[in-house]
Design a protein around this nucleic acid. Structure first.
Lengths: 225, 225
DNA sequence: TGTACATCAGTGAACGCGCGTTCACTGATGTAC
DNA sequence: TGTACATCAGTGAACGCGCGTTCACTGATGTAC
């Protein structure tokens, strides 16, 4: 009990700092994230923040992990809410949830999926949270009884995929895994183009376009229905 | 003749500045591009650069346009070199050229396709150069006699695509255009994941993976052969 | 071909601002007695 | 319940560095005569 109250306060304040930091991202991007700016917005001295994050990079890491986890749990929740739908519609529901999150958290999307931050190297602790999103897609594909006979197999030479993928998804064939990966990077490509302004002269109605595109990706994944 | 020599020198020096600037991008990213750093590397005073670029943003714009044009002409050359191949192989050749350029120009790739640069708004003059790359893909699809009957049409409601696309590609159906757009964003997704490190734990051999993925995208585009 | 002269390239100091991080410190918090 | 005390939160000045941009200036370039 002695420590817990102190620790609670610490945790709450750290959350508050991250909240303000997320707002700062909008103005100056990840590369320009500044502890002094955050302190200014909180009406505190910049040195105060060092009680909570030993360094600017530590704060960045915390923001990155939070963003992956937030997006990851959003995807997982959307999947659970769609359990009774067809595999295709499960997939579409998850994709739409991912897109909604991305539109509402543009700066965090850029933080985790945009250009690497100069002079910052993401530590290993970011890997597991980052994997949550594609794992949801893989689980849908697995339980969705892939039926890819229409398309023929993806001609993937052996050992192209990382061995760790096989450990994570032991009952999936390389063909299935590569289809999932391609689906995930295709979804990301759609979101990135939309959010970073590369559809300005080509797509007029983003919602509808995304929806069609995602159904098409589901079809290519071989999902039922 | 009076002006031409002076103008030549000016142009040559501007090119030199951009060359040094491209090297700076590697260390500090687009957001951190600094005229003072460029000047330091050239052993000149920072104020000297203002003879050539009125502002830091003007230099950024020049770099962005150059990057789009460089990548665009790379894609166009690859297409021309592959004229005699099948549509699918033309497509694959262009994609591989795009990937090679991206791997050799990681910083410029991030400059044009990465997170938006804070407090910088790209002017209209970047739009046309940016369009060159997807236009090559569209031309291949058009001349490659799309055969999408295996897949059924993409169910795209009317007016989802921008009207300007139709003007640019008057003889393409919305179905064809949306397939091209989806192909382009899928390719971009692959490149972005590879370059920004999101394949570290899943793809072990990037060359082979990209190759398979791109064949698959060509198939989905309905390209012959 | 030689020279006077305008034009332009490049300089260096300055303005006003920003940053991450450290350090000795004050003052509040919360607990053990 | 009251108080002494340790612990921790937050301060403010400082270090050493960075930036974009302006401005009056020197000195080289290249041309017109």
């Amino acid at each position: 009990m002695t420590l817990s109250k102190v620790q609670e306060n610490r945790a709450a304040k750290a959350e508050q700092i991250k909240g303000v930091a997320r707002h700062c991202l909008a103005n100056d991007g990840a590369a320009g994230l500044s502890l002094r700016e955050i302190a200014r917005r909180m009406n505190e001295s910049s040195s105060a923040l060092y009680r909570y994050f030993p360094t600017r990079d530590a704060l960045l890491t915390a923001l990155i992990i939070d963003a992956y986890n937030d997006l990851g749990s959003t995807a997982e929740r959307a999947w659970q809410a769609a359990q009774r739908k067809t595999p295709t519609n499960q997939f579409v529901a998850v994709c739409k949830a991912i897109r909604s999150w991305s539109l509402e958290h543009r700066d965090e999307f850029a933080l985790i999926f945009g250009s690497p931050i100069p002079n910052y190297a993401a530590p290993e602790s970011t890997i597991a949270p980052a994997a949550r999103i594609p794992l949801v897609l893989a689980h849908i594909a697995r339980s969705g009884t892939i039926d890819a006979s229409n398309f023929g197999p993806v001609s993937l030479p052996p050992r192209v995929l990382d061995a760790r993928l096989g450990e994570l998804l032991p009952d999936m064939s390389p063909d299935q895994m590569s289809r999932c990966l391609m689906a995930w990077s295709a979804i990301f490509g759609l979101l990135s183009f939309e959010l970073f302004g590369h559809f300005v002269n080509s797509v007029a109605k983003s919602d509808e376009y995304f929806s069609s595109a995602v159904y098409e990706i589901a079809r290519r994944l071989g999902l039922k229905s």
